[in-house]
């Protein structure tokens, strides 16, 4: 019974949270109030964990809440519940898209969607840069520009930029190197 509840609750969250992981947050707060499976503090912790592990916040929260409520099987059930609606919808769209790819309306929509999509990607990059390259809280507190720029991080960023252009390595290698540099140089 608890499995069914987990699947249903997270299915609902997965169905209505449009626009990526953070869009699940309002639903998670609601679920926390409704079911008591996890607290608001748990959600805050999970945001921190999700920033430091692969996997999106919604997926991670489902696994976490499911595990806390009903063990390993619960964690897996809740995650499947969350993922199911998006998988079903994408399957339908993918079928539809194959047929209508050359349709004039679909082509027109993509003509507008493409620049919008890379605008969103740019904003995602800016948001990461805001925590990766500068220290906004320190700047707000002291008002000095030397506190604003995280020089070690910026140097790493420039080296990575050149490296990813010149070297044909997998991005995975660059991620591992960056983690090692972060630990060694105490970024």
């Amino acid at each position: 019974m608890i499995f069914l509840q987990l699947i249903l609750q997270f299915f609902k969250t997965g169905l209505f949270s449009v626009g990526g992981g953070l869009a699940t947050l309002p639903f998670l707060y609601e679920m926390s109030d409704l079911t008591g499976w996890f607290s608001h503090a748990d959600i805050a912790d999970m945001i921190a964990v999700s920033e430091s592990t692969p996997g999106a916040i919604g997926i991670n929260m489902a696994t976490y809440a499911g595990f806390k409520t009903a063990g390993v099987a619960g964690g897996i059930m809740a995650t499947i519940g969350l993922a199911a609606p998006s998988v079903i919808i994408i399957l339908i769209i993918a079928k539809f898209l194959e047929k209508f790819r050359k349709n004039r309306l679909v082509e027109g929509a993509f003509y507008g969607l493409r620049p919008a999509s890379i605008a969103m990607i740019t904003v995602a990059g800016v948001n990461v840069a805001k925590v990766a390259l500068v220290d906004l809280p320190a700047f707000a507190a002291t008002g000095s520009f030397s506190a604003l720029f995280l020089w070690k991080n910026i140097i790493l960023g420039v080296l990575l930029f050149i490296g990813t252009r010149k070297l044909k390595w997998s991005p995975i290698i660059f991620i591992i190197i960056s983690a090692a540099v972060g630990i060694i140089f105490q970024l």
Binding site: I121, A132, L156, L160, L187
Partner: peptide, 19 residues
């Protein structure tokens, strides 16, 4: 925290390249 400070820089660069 240190490892992820490094990874965030890399993620930022990778996103710029994609754009």
């Amino acid at each position: 925290q240190h490892a992820f400070a490094g990874i965030r820089v890399c993620v930022c660069v990778l996103i710029v390249q994609a754009v």
